[in-house]
Amino acid sequence: MSRNFYQEARKLAAENRKTLDAKRREFKNNRKRMFDELVFCLLTPQSSMLKCKHAVCQLKNKGLLQKGNKKGMAAALKGKTRFHNNKARYVALARVKFDGRALLKIRGTGQKREWLVKNIEGLGQKEASHFLRNIGFFDVAIIDRHVKSVIKKYGLAKPAKTLTKKEYERLEKVIGQAAAKTGLETGIFDLLLFAMDAETGAKRRAELLKALK
């Protein structure tokens, strides 16, 4: 593993310590509105994070988040997320299937993720991990193309072309080990990896870390 990687990661973490602490508090506080976060994570695949965040607010303000039909939600989501018809259907199904209190009773974050992938249509390993991280479970990684790019670039691991469950868990373990060496939880360290690939320059990375969700 590259010494330069750890130097850069520790420097980025130190420069943005207050932001990372604020993110921890924000994510833990999201347990008060778990369904909102679940919908956000259902909307994000292949879509803009900021547009999806706005879309959840719009659904909520229009009274569609909890009670809207698929047609009404799809119309509200059009232009804000790709595959808006499918995602409106996912939200409608999630209303029936998702039980936040029951999820919290499941022992172990890995078991929680397995339940989500099995029971909530539209959630894969990455999206389920994103949701769990966003409600304060930090022992998961959100492995997207940015994260894969960084761990490959710095020689932490060589990601396979296909991200199977086994491969996801292998890379997540690598990320967890790297996170421990920087004194961060896996889910918080994941934010640094995203910023390291998506932006260059301390100022732009700091701005991105504040905006990430």
Rank of each mutant, 00 (worst) to 15 (best):
M1F: 09
S2P: 00
A9F: 04
N16R: 03
R17D: 14
T19H: 02
D21L: 12
A22T: 05
A22N: 06
R24I: 13
K28C: 04
N29F: 05
N30D: 10
N30Y: 07
R31N: 02
R33F: 02
F35R: 00
E37Q: 12
C41P: 10
T44I: 07
C52T: 03
C52V: 03
C52Y: 02
V56Y: 06
L59W: 00
K60C: 08
K62G: 01
G63I: 13
L65K: 14
L65M: 14
K67N: 13
A74H: 11
L77M: 10
G79P: 09
K80G: 09
T81G: 06
R82W: 02
A88Y: 07
A92S: 14
F98R: 03
D99V: 08
G100P: 00
G100E: 03
L103N: 04
L104S: 12
K105A: 13
I106P: 11
R107L: 06
Q111H: 09
Q111V: 09
L116Q: 04
N119S: 11
I120P: 03
E127M: 02
H130C: 04
F131W: 07
N134R: 11
F138I: 11
F138T: 06
D139T: 10
I142Y: 04
K148A: 05
V150C: 05
Y154P: 13
T162F: 07
L163E: 08
T164C: 09
A179C: 12
A180D: 15
A180W: 00
K181R: 15
G183T: 11
T186L: 06
F189L: 08
L191F: 10
L192F: 08
M196F: 09
K210A: 14
K210W: 07
A211Q: 14
K213P: 01
